[in-house]
Design a protein around this nucleic acid. Sequence first.
DNA 1: CTGTTAGCGCATTCAA
DNA 2: TTGAATGCGCTAACAG
Lengths: 334, 334
Amino acid sequence: MPATIHDVAKKAGVGIGTVSSVLNNSRPVNEATRQRVLTAITELDFVPNPSGRRLSMGKTHTIGVVVPFFTSPAQIKRLRGVMSVISESEYDISLFAVETLIQRDRVLQTVPHRGRIDGLLIISIDPSADDVHRIQRHNIPTVLVEAYHPNLHSLQIDDTSAAQKAVDYIIELGHRKIAYISEYLDTPFGVFSQHRYQGYCRALKAAGIPINPAYLRECNPEREEGRCMALELLTLPDPPTAIFAYSDLQALGALEAARELNLTVPRDLSVVGYDDIDTARFAQLTTVRQHLFEAGMQGVEYLLDAIENPDMPPVHIQLPTELVIRQTTAPPAR
Amino acid sequence: MPATIHDVAKKAGVGIGTVSSVLNNSRPVNEATRQRVLTAITELDFVPNPSGRRLSMGKTHTIGVVVPFFTSPAQIKRLRGVMSVISESEYDISLFAVETLIQRDRVLQTVPHRGRIDGLLIISIDPSADDVHRIQRHNIPTVLVEAYHPNLHSLQIDDTSAAQKAVDYIIELGHRKIAYISEYLDTPFGVFSQHRYQGYCRALKAAGIPINPAYLRECNPEREEGRCMALELLTLPDPPTAIFAYSDLQALGALEAARELNLTVPRDLSVVGYDDIDTARFAQLTTVRQHLFEAGMQGVEYLLDAIENPDMPPVHIQLPTELVIRQTTAPPAR
DNA sequence: CTGTTAGCGCATTCAA
DNA sequence: TTGAATGCGCTAACAG
């Protein structure tokens, strides 16, 4: 039904090779015939069938992007970065949102294949040994964003020291009773939650503050769950005076909990988040800023490089973070 | 380099037709041979090349999604709805984020072609006559979400009456000086902004309140721009006592502006937003809720229907909205 | 400068 | 129940 290259050729009175040539500038074409072809293309509203082109060239012109927690503002901001450079490139993007372990495995099993994608961007998922094995066997250029494996290109922040610095700051303020609302520490997607928790522990240890297990909570990085955990924390017999959260969303939930309990922030409670999403600024939240948009951008840029240049040895980039001090932190009241 | 159906066939000692049969259950296969094929597939880590399959079947198994303002929370929420049903389907998704007019035109020109996609979901863009013409000529199943054209399936809310109800409520509260922070009224993507503005005008007219041009501002639906517009409005010689905004983001900006001016909300200023994004709840913002996630879901569901059933006459669905009253609205102070 | 042909990987006839 | 042959739309190599 749709026009093919043959239709164009016939209409322009030329062979398909010539049409292909003007389409791709792959060889010189007489200006007059070029014009004939061009008008035929316009009249037929012809667009080359990508499947045909892909099959013929052995190149898909699409890159796969695998993202968990598609819902989260932080991921969206990374994705925006991704899209901003993809839009300007000759590549299409195929988006795989994985919410469950099953999906994760299925996607990582079926997507990294030649003929399916030219490159793979994996965000916030530490690939398993099997996954990496497959990726390497199929020789798929791959970049990990906010994840790590020695054999693959990766971009990530130093979660441990970023978290440590945040907690250092809370301690400097004079707090001793500091709770941590974590992502599940054994999440199957990656190990950042452990890194951030380590940073928390290190800061406490360095200050000689014992780690109180009652001050640790694990939940999904969402506002509502953060709120519940904060409610638990703040109604403890000996409640914390500060809460550090794995994500801004959880920190926002903590702010909500404080409000419900008629606690004034930062007088009665200090709260520190992580990510610096847009809402963090609105909520005046002190938080660890990571450059999400840039991470997405750079991720694709490296990927496009890696596609051009398949034998590049793995590059591991460390992205900067900053503690952004706003209105939700202060010395403890007492 | 990657395994093909021929490799599998050779390894299993069968013909490619047999491999294809077990792959697609397209015809009965002897159980023993089936097993041989299956093990060959596993050992080779074979996954069918989608381009080959597409070319052969004349079906791409992918649907295109065109979205402007990819950054906006409202769009993301719709996209989440889209992804949630796509993930469970046999379709891949190809995402086209358009931020500029150029991109919009290019995408709408090159994407709606057989062999490229099986169906098209267009969000928040009113297609031009040309676009619709092309879509129909190429016979591409298409669903419009938050947009409208008589010839294409569409899902949308009644923007005019939703906006009118919101402003009615503000008037009932006793306000007379009601400003409106609009999206650009001549945005080339669609006409909702005009609809909402009409709703605003109608409510005012019905209450016998003259429309004050000084109380109208146009800007992009973003927080920072909303903040600037609100700042202008609130420093007017005769400032409004209530602000209605085209989007929650702009309303959030208005809240910020009020804070900067030491205005207490809702005592000194009432603010009403539109969308009910997640942050709206956090900010206790009174707003017009539309069911974004569901709109995305239903959009794809209709699209999948339309793909199965290409001759279905255009369906036009009206989605409900609700005014959610929270803490940013009250009678005017005086 | 241009027309013709082979082949990309697959599903699907048609024979056997 | 299965193998071999055809064609999907295209690019690139080949021949003129």
